[in-house]
Amino acid sequence: MMNVVNDFMQALLNVDRLLAKKIIDDHVSIMHPIQLIEDIVVVALERIGTGWQDGTYALSQVYMSGRICEEVVDTILPPSDPDRKDQPKMAICVLSDHHKLGKTIVYSLLRASGFELLDFDIVEVNDMVARVKEQKIKILLISVLMLPSALKIKKVKKIFKDEGLDTKIIVGGAPFRFDDQLWQEVGADAMCETASEAVSVVHNLMECVS
């Protein structure tokens, strides 16, 4: 299995879509899709994410790997597949900033790891809260780039509290990487330094929520 993970990871790092797809196709007949995702795809993506943090891999490799995995996983586990982990209901958004890369990476990584979630794209506080209520979102992932946008999460938290919503908030983005207390200050339930951390953080929160 280690060799397969290594080969798959190399294919991703080289942005070799065809090889990545072939490796998955070769295993889909002998492994259950969920097991294949967890043992190969998630492991490879996590390693690439850690490698980005220590400077071994480039952000562009993290992004392209996520996109490729998302495509590959969609073929073996379509969006509507009952094996997709879509409960409790989750959504992701960018708060205020015109910077979608962080969000896109997290979204791809979660989908490539077998989760299903809604994408609210770029939203402001009130719009976001309305959609959380309408869609009965239990876990909300928020990505920001600017410090003022991070501080706006305080407002989101306050509205959730005032209206008795128990939606959990996971935050990420540059300001949180530069101030390790900021996530608690804005009232988030968890923070991720990298996109690949999101998979385990979401797993943990899912257990709390369900």
Binding site: V15, L59, S60, Y63, M64, H99, K100, L101, T104
Partner: peptide, 11 residues
């Protein structure tokens, strides 16, 4: 052009 599209352009 946006960061995501810029990366795609490079590759």
């Amino acid at each position: 052009m946006g960061f995501d599209k810029y990366i795609e352009l490079m590759y």
